[in-house]
Design a protein around this nucleic acid. Sequence first.
DNA 1: TTGAAAGCGCTAACAG
DNA 2: CTGTTAGCGCTTTCAA
Lengths: 322, 322
Amino acid sequence: MTTIRDVAKQAEVSVATVSRVINKRGYVHEETLKKVEQAIKELNYKPNDVARSLFKKTSNSIGFIIPDITNPFFPQLVRAVESTMIESGYTVILFNSDEVLDHELKLIELMESKYMDGLLVVSNTITKDHLENLTMPVVAIDRVLDKGIPTVYVDNYKGARQAVQFLIKKGCQKIAYLHGPEKIFTAKERLRGYQDEMEKNGLPTFIYPGNYELKASMMSTIRLLAEHPDVDGIFAGNDVMAVGAIKAASKMGYTIPKELKIIGFDGIDLATAITPELTTMHQPILEIGKKGSELLLQLIAGQSPEKKHYVYDAELVERNST
Amino acid sequence: MTTIRDVAKQAEVSVATVSRVINKRGYVHEETLKKVEQAIKELNYKPNDVARSLFKKTSNSIGFIIPDITNPFFPQLVRAVESTMIESGYTVILFNSDEVLDHELKLIELMESKYMDGLLVVSNTITKDHLENLTMPVVAIDRVLDKGIPTVYVDNYKGARQAVQFLIKKGCQKIAYLHGPEKIFTAKERLRGYQDEMEKNGLPTFIYPGNYELKASMMSTIRLLAEHPDVDGIFAGNDVMAVGAIKAASKMGYTIPKELKIIGFDGIDLATAITPELTTMHQPILEIGKKGSELLLQLIAGQSPEKKHYVYDAELVERNST
DNA sequence: TTGAAAGCGCTAACAG
DNA sequence: CTGTTAGCGCTTTCAA
């Protein structure tokens, strides 16, 4: 490995001078600059990030904790975050937590001991308390951890109401809701939206658990349709469950969208891979990732953003399942 | 931040002694051990990974370069790698390269300057030459970079032949192949398998490009079916394309599997999300990730594995598209 | 069994 | 404009 010392020797200057040229900081005579650059090239010198980090207490990297990359909602989010972080010279370290608090806390410790510069997090288990004596800035994505913590997310409640409204407008009278895990923020909000909108329209509610999963959703849909064969609309808390509902309902002989209309939430790629293509409340995933990253970058730079919470609207994308 | 020095002071010993206890190395008197542990607890001391790395030229982390996490093949692979790496105390740093050589090379430089301990890579662009003067061990996954580089992958050729055989056994006589990107190793191997098996059976070949993508596959399938309406079987180079083929063929009025049988390759989750569920050549993704990680771990530990190449068989999973 | 001290590779005063 | 030097926090000889 070639170090700054080697370069200094080769260029016949001090290490301080070499440091100046690689950091483009301070005065360096044109001549010496040339010499140093020459030496750097000859030796193929690359500064050592670890040594740099140790001194600067900074690593040009941020951590991104998500529940599970296997959940089709996250790959796109990750890419969005990554691409805006890279532009600013940061590398993002991805962690899958499975929403196990213990893991998350361990990861945060790890991040501190590696001088990571910031944390982007999607979690329902971490709370303000866990973050209190954390030195690095934190931005939450997709879930509100605390009013005080900068957050970027979609208005799930509003989106849910809109989804239900749409089904009603399409003529549905008996609309069921497939809901996600009890403890997950987004699932609760979407459920609340469903309930309020149904109530507002004087319609009865039918709530079945789907756990944001395909299999669970299929089973619930089968039960739902057995118990209430005349259901004519299903609002699924996410696209994955909506796909499950479509599969199950088709298998049971329902024609979609004629007899039964189904709408999802998220706007993942899967929605267009299936037949019929899924009508859904599309989240601006890329924008969310981008804004979250920008917020964190600002915080890292010591600036305080104008707003703490950035809320986006989900957008109705009508396809063939309604 | 509390450092080893703080702990030493608190415990009234030298930093060397503290270092010994946190590393469980060398002799430490029972009494002093107690004192030090006490101090560590009181101060909630956590050793600083960066300082450690600087000295040890090691980071307990490995890099994992993949083309694109958005490709549904990778999330599972990533999880498999991550989980076996974590067990050994390593953290994995994921990088999306989009198979752009320039990015990949940059990433490798970054990894070196961070003292990462090893590289796991899925790439068609990196070659032996790029890796030559790399100090860290490398293991390739899913694509063979060079005979000399340890690799873990599936026998794509054999799997492809098996897929075609199966279609023939099911009565197909006019079987088309949707193939992936020209330059991708897996795509080439699968194409070769298709061609050889068709030739062996004296059957004509129909090869259409699908680029491993849904949209491209749909367009090609439409063209295929327009040009050769009597095609009765499609072997898609991957599951994503198979899904596209199903969508397109259905739209054109073909009943699957009655008039047209479709088989894919990979065994991603998407295969069971659609209707009809996709028959496919299933890759043991988890095992591949696990074996790749274990290999790398061995290499990092300075051991040389018995074999350099680990080849798995894809397994035929029959579902409803055939 | 313990401590002093050197040094991993780099940056940033500070002095010149 | 450039060099000397003191660390960043840790590990590891080497002596004691």
